[in-house]
């Protein structure tokens, strides 16, 4: 049986990778991918605690997190396509439309 702490360690490393990816990359599609990594890190935590505490509710929370992630991807990619039509770029450094 794998100790619970190992799952928590794995999930924290995964969250760290996602956080650094969001901070350093310029391509906005990759930034969205890194947000997915962070959501998955949280999901691993939820499922691990759900098994070790014998509570099924955490898995339902994971279900809702997946729903929100799907909605976030649809909206985010729609926004990216709209900005790309306007600016012809996907670098976050050049997304300064609000201060035109």
């Amino acid at each position: 049986m794998v100790p619970l702490s190992w799952y928590v360690a794995l999930s924290s490393f995964l969250f760290l990778i996602g956080l650094v990816g969001v901070l350093i990359r310029r391509n906005i599609v990759i930034v969205l991918l890194c947000i997915e990594i962070m959501l998955n890190a949280v999901n691993i935590n939820f499922v691990a605690f759900s098994k070790y505490q014998h509570v099924i509710d955490a898995q339902i929370f994971v279900f809702f997190v997946i729903t929100v992630a799907a909605a976030e991807v649809a909206i985010g990619l729609g926004i990216i396509i709209a900005i790309f039509r306007l600016r012809e770029t996907i670098n976050i450094d050049e997304f300064n439309i609000l201060k035109l």
Partner: peptide
């Protein structure tokens, strides 16, 4: 409901 709003929003944005 969240999924429905995301659907409509994605279509409108794109």
């Amino acid at each position: 409901l969240v999924l429905l709003i995301a659907l409509v929003g994605a279509i409108v944005l794109a």
